[in-house]
């Protein structure tokens, strides 16, 4: 073996070890995730690293596999390939540290249950199969509702809520889980301005408590204001990193192709030059 090859081999090994160490430090690390619903893959060989204590946006066009990536990371949809590491452990051993907020439209809001009951679902791991719901559990659920400004709605049937209120209830359920990693699927989709403010305040507070928050996000205009890291995907990973370096006009163009309204890119170009 020639010296140069040997040096490259050592360098490869060092890079591999470094990647493993990074995965162990991260809140969540995804390696080569591929998911397919039919003929062509919805997500193809995506790597992503979500460092601890950060607020991360997953951004990409409709049908780019953002939600699918989240679901595959959580084992909700089966992966064709790939590994998921959560706080350095396989997902199965770290489930208690992860909270998930599905898309609001993914459930039937006509379901016969009350707001407080939905929030109590977040305490399932503690309550178990037959555990009795004590006053202390109710108080914790109410405290979570208070954090999203929904205390007065505790005894309402969930079908009576507006879209924004439903989203807040979902967030309260995740808060009840008291997790270290929060994965949210489109938390700002179709909500009113007050709700958007309430949600981002809670997410920033979670980050301040040294927790990690990952959101599938569709509104390019708010990425810079809300998040500190971004993952751009369109079936494949396009770019990943701090908003300042990864959320560039060039990367957006690569992610959205010709579909993106150019106004936003122009604006970004201007700010990059300025």
């Amino acid at each position: 073996m020639q010296a140069r090859d040997r040096i490259e081999l050592v360098a490869d090994r060092e890079a591999e070890a470094e990647a493993r160490a990074e995965a162990a430090r991260a809140a969540m690390a995804l390696r080569a995730i591929t998911v397919s619903y039919g003929e062509s893959p919805a997500v193809f060989s995506v790597d992503a690293t979500f460092p601890r204590d950060s607020l991360i946006a997953i951004v990409g066009p409709n049908g780019a596999g953002k939600s699918t990536l989240l679901k595959a990371a959580l084992g909700i949809v089966p992966r064709l390939s790939g590994t998921v590491t959560v706080f350095g452990a396989p997902l199965e051993r770290a489930r208690a540290r992860v909270a998930y907020v599905p898309q609001r439209a993914s459930v039937d809001w006509d379901f016969p249950t009350r707001v407080i009951d939905v929030v109590l679902m977040g305490l399932y791991r503690e309550l178990g199969l037959l555990g009795f719901v004590r006053a202390s559990h109710r108080e914790r659920a109410l405290a979570c509702l208070a954090r999203v400004g929904m205390t007065d709605f505790a005894d309402r049937q969930i079908g009576q809520l507006s879209g924004g209120q439903q989203q807040r209830v979902f967030l309260a359920r995740a808060l009840a889980q008291d997790a270290d990693l929060y994965l949210l699927d489109e938390p700002f989709a179709g909500v009113d301005a007050a709700t958007e403010k309430a949600i981002i305040d809670v997410l920033k507070a979670l980050k301040a408590e040294a927790r990690t928050v990952v959101c599938v996000h569709h509104d390019l205009a708010t990425v810079t204001a809300y998040f500190d890291r971004v993952l751009l995907i369109n079936t494949r990973r396009i770019a990943e990193g701090p908003v300042a370096t990864a959320f560039t006009a060039e990367n957006l163009q690569a992610t959205y192709g010709g579909r993106l309204a150019s106004a936003h890119i122009d604006q970004l170009r201007l700010s990059e030059q300025g």
């Binding site: 084992g75 909700i76 489930r95 998930y100 599905p102 993914s106 249950t113 939905v118 679902m121 178990g128």
Partner: peptide
């Protein structure tokens, strides 16, 4: 009665129930 809680949870929100390990 015994499986009430997981049954209700997974009927209402199957994705969320799966993330709990159900």
């Amino acid at each position: 009665l015994v499986f009430w809680r997981p049954l209700k949870l997974s009927t209402f929100d199957e994705g969320f129930a799966a993330t709990l390990g159900l």
